[in-house]
Amino acid sequence: MSPKASLELVCPAGNLPALKIAVDNGADCVYMGFKDNTNARAFPGLNFDPASAREGVRYAHSKGARVLLALNTFPQSEKWERWQAAVDNAVEFGIDAVILADPGLMGYAAKNYPNLRLHLSVQGSATNYEAINFYHEHFGIRRAVIPRVLSLAQVEQVVKNTPVEIELFGFGGLCVMVEGRCALSSYATGESPNTCGVCSPAKAVRWEQTPKGLESRLNGILLDRYGKDENAGYPTLCKGRFEVNNETYYAIEEPTSLNTLEMLPEMIAMGIAAIKIEGRQRSPAYVEQVTKVWRSAIDAAKRAPDSYAVNPAWMAQLNKVAEGQQNTLGAYHRPWK
């Protein structure tokens, strides 16, 4: 089968119900994390313990879907064993591939489990084919997830120059910064995606009603202030309103969702191997809605790429669950930059 025909839908599974819903609604793969800071969604109440991980793998395999495990934080030196054990457990539980960011951990996995399929996480910050080919040559990675900073033309250049499968983000929360290269969260709170698997962690968030409006603070730093008629979203650091040269605005990015439905035929034509849906922290209802829509869209685009058009009903369904109720093509579309 050519890669063009085999574009896969990769859906988020924050817990077992979400995993089952994703599989039932047509996900080719689901990705999940263990219940600790070995993955970049180390949120309280989320993720899989050994029993639910085994059950998730059993369920997915019984329905012909595969399970990917995100081990995509950077092992902190004094706790290395935790990440190493996570790789060992992934193999034991029958996980189909591990998604890694740390070169040291990749070395461990490649050496000890030569048959384990390795994916380079978006947290690995590989934005060009020389970087991706580095991981291919040294660790035999099979797939790389590209940070959400390249234009579609730049992605195509990558695809043409690497034997590694390329996975792109298609929908969900949008990181404006190159993943794996953003320490804004630790600058404010002491914890970042790289070191702790969190960004703008909930425990550092404070909401306060004041005479000036509803204020959101991260470790005491004012991220935004909302008027009566404004929707207040989760206070992610880079999506607050700030003051630059006496002008107050979304200086880094608006609260918005990435949505690339309209680019699907182009992505298929250039040989993208997989589309990833963001949102392991979101509800099973979100996973259900998004999986359904993207399954329909991918099937439609594969069936008849030339006559493919985005169904307005799909957009309506996605808009209901989108962050900030706004969509963007992000960096895939050059003017965003």
Binding site: W80, D102, A126, T127, A131, F134, R181
Partner: peptide, 28 residues
């Protein structure tokens, strides 16, 4: 970035792993 590491290692040249290479543990 790791693209630079790739080229430098392939050319067998000594290099400095800069602040934007994620070197967080002894294994790396």
């Amino acid at each position: 970035d790791m693209g630079a590491v790739h080229l430098l290692a392939a050319a067998k040249l000594p290099f400095v792993a800069g602040p934007h290479i994620n070197t967080y543990n002894p294994q790396t």
